[in-house]
Amino acid sequence: MKEIILLLLFCHVASPVTHSLKIFHTGSTEVPNFPEFVGVALVDEVQIGHYDSNTKRAVPKHWMNKVIADYPGHLEWYTARNLEAHQFFKAELQTLKQRFNQTGGVHTYQRMVGCEWDDVTGDYVNGFHQHGYDGEDWLVLDLKTLTWIAPTLQAVITKQNRNNDKAELAACWDFLSQVCIDLLKKYVHYGKSTLQRTVLPSVSLLQKSPSSPVSCHATGFYPDKGMLFWTRDGEELQDLMDQGEILPNHDGTFQRSVQLDVSSVKPEDWGKYECVFQLSGVKEDIVTKLDPAVIKTNNPGINTALVIGVVGLLLLLVICITGVFIWRRNNNGFRPANTLETSSAKPASPT
C-alpha cells in the first residue's frame, strides 16, 4: 500500500558551521495523559514549534513568530500537515498491531526526518528518514542507495512496497536534499541572533552520599558544543571518569555531567582534582576544584568536609594497624529518555 507521509518543517542548527533540521512525530495508543499524536520542531535542539491532537493547533516558539509574521500561511500549512499526519499515524498503528498480532495496550509509532547543511561551504551534508515502533527500529532510508532497510522481519513487506514505489522514493530524496535544505536556510537566517549566541553555564559539584562518585554538572550553556572533564594536576583523566551525554533544557540551553570515582582518591589528594568546562568559541575555561565544602549532597545535615576528615583519620589508623585497606564504591545512575517530534514548512511527501 502506498504510504504518503506529509511532513512539517521547522529548522535545526547543530553547530556554528553545520546546521541541521530534525522533524519528529509520535503517534500512540492508550498512553495515559498523553495526546494521541504530537509534532515537535527543533532548531539546534531548541523547540521552536509544537502541535498535538488535543488542541489541534500549531504553536510557534522563539524566532518562528517572525517567520509566521512574514509568511502568514505557514502556520495554517503546518497545522494542516499535522492533521493529515495524525490520520496516517492512526492507520499505521492499526496495521502494525495486526502485523505483530497485538490487540490493545500501549503502543507508539515514531518518525524522524531531517537534513544537515554546512553554512560555510554551502554544501548539503546529510539527510535522515527513520521510523520506529514501540521503541525499536522499524524502517530506515539508506540515502546512498535510496532504498528502505527493514531491521525486523515484520517490516519486510512494508520495505518491499516502498522500494517498489520509485515515485515515492524520488519524493523522499527531493524533500531531504532540496525542500528541507531551503527551509533550513530560511530558519537559520531568521534565528541567527539566537543560534549564534554564546551562553556560559553554572557548574555544580553533586554527590548522592559520601560513598558515591562526585558529579560535575554544567547546565545552561549554549551552543551544544560544551566539553566537560576532570583533571588531576592539570592532566585530563580518562580511567576514573564517566562522561554523560549532552542533554537539552526546556529553555533551549544544554546540560552535561561527568562523574569522578573518588573511591581510590586519598582525602589529602582531593585538592589536586579539578572539573573543567570548555565551550566552543570561548577562550577562558570554567574550572571548579574538587572541594568538599562546595559539594551538594542528598544527605542534609552531613558536613562533607567533616566526613572526609574523619575518613582520612580512620584510614591512617587502619594503615598503621593492619597495613591493608579496601574501599568499595557503587555508582548508580540513570539516563533520561527524550521523545521529540517535528514538523516542516512546505508540502512534501517523503514516505
Rank of each mutant, 00 (worst) to 15 (best):
Y51E: 03
M64F: 15
A58Q: 00
M112F: 02
N331Y: 08
L240W: 03
S264G: 15
K22W: 13
F229A: 05
L83T: 10
E116T: 13
N332H: 14
F334P: 00
P60E: 08
T304N: 15
A41G: 15
M64T: 13
K272Y: 03
K56H: 10
F24W: 13
N163A: 09
D44Y: 01
I321V: 15
H250R: 04
Y222V: 01
E284P: 03
E235L: 09
N298V: 01
Y222A: 04
R81W: 02
Q47C: 12
H12N: 13
G281L: 01
L279I: 01
G135K: 04
V276E: 07
N338H: 11
Q98M: 09
V67L: 13
I4R: 07
I286Y: 02
F88M: 11
M1F: 07
C216T: 03
S264A: 13
T297M: 11
T288K: 13
E245R: 07
D182T: 06
V262A: 05
A150W: 03
E268R: 07
K283D: 13
E274H: 13
V59H: 11
T152K: 15
L9D: 11
Q255F: 03
N54V: 14
G104S: 11
A41M: 00
V67Y: 15
S343R: 03
L83V: 08
Y133E: 03
L96R: 11
V324R: 07
N33K: 13
T158N: 05
D52I: 07
S280L: 09
T198Q: 00
